[in-house]
């Protein structure tokens, strides 16, 4: 997160990172955690990262929660660009960035989630069932 987006590690200092299968969950580290650890749990914290092939991808939720601390790989888009992404079209942008994920922002710093930047074009990584359907109807 620091290398790609410039989100300082210190932003995660108050959290624990838990691994379950191919996902990592972020949960607030508190004095209560050890005492509740024996409870039967279905899930702990927010799914923050998941392994996709050989890569570890941040989830939309963790980007929406921590993306405001990012200092690079951010892209402000407008409504027309968003609608194009939601139609699964790629948008052309001129960024001095290595290929990889970018944080998509609309309006006054409202973080939508991630796009994938490859050779000057961005494709949507936004959750289909929510943002896409809402915006297209």
């Amino acid at each position: 997160m620091e290398q790609r987006f410039g989100i300082p590690q210190t932003q995660f200092a108050d959290y624990l990172l838990l691994c379950k299968k191919r996902s990592w969950f972020l949960i607030r580290d508190t004095e209560f955690i050890p005492s509740v650890a024996p409870l039967k749990a279905a899930q702990a914290g927010l799914r923050a990262f998941q392994q996709v092939g050989d890569f570890i991808k941040p989830t939309t939720r963790v980007i929406q929660s921590f993306g405001r601390f990012a200092t690079r790989a951010r892209l402000q888009i407008d409504l027309i660009q968003l609608q194009a992404l939601l139609r699964e079209e790629k948008i052309h942008v001129d960024l001095t960035l290595d290929n990889g994920y970018v944080i998509l922002i609309i309006g006054e710093d409202q973080i939508l989630g991630l796009g994938l930047y490859v050779n000057g074009r961005i494709s949507s990584q936004l959750p289909k069932k929510e943002i896409r359907m809402t915006m297209l109807t």
Binding site: Y15, L26, I27, R28, T30, F32, S35, V36, P38, L39, K40, A41, A42, Q43, A44, G45, L46, R47, R61, Q64, S65, E130
Partner: peptide, 27 residues
């Protein structure tokens, strides 16, 4: 439940799976 907590960016919750009336008394 998980979807709502995630969508709302909740970072301090654990989902447990007990019958409410039999929730363990250890805590």
């Amino acid at each position: 439940l998980g979807h709502t907590l995630a969508r709302m960016g909740v970072l301090n919750a654990v989902i447990t799976v007990y019958q409410a009336q039999e929730f363990p008394l250890r805590n």
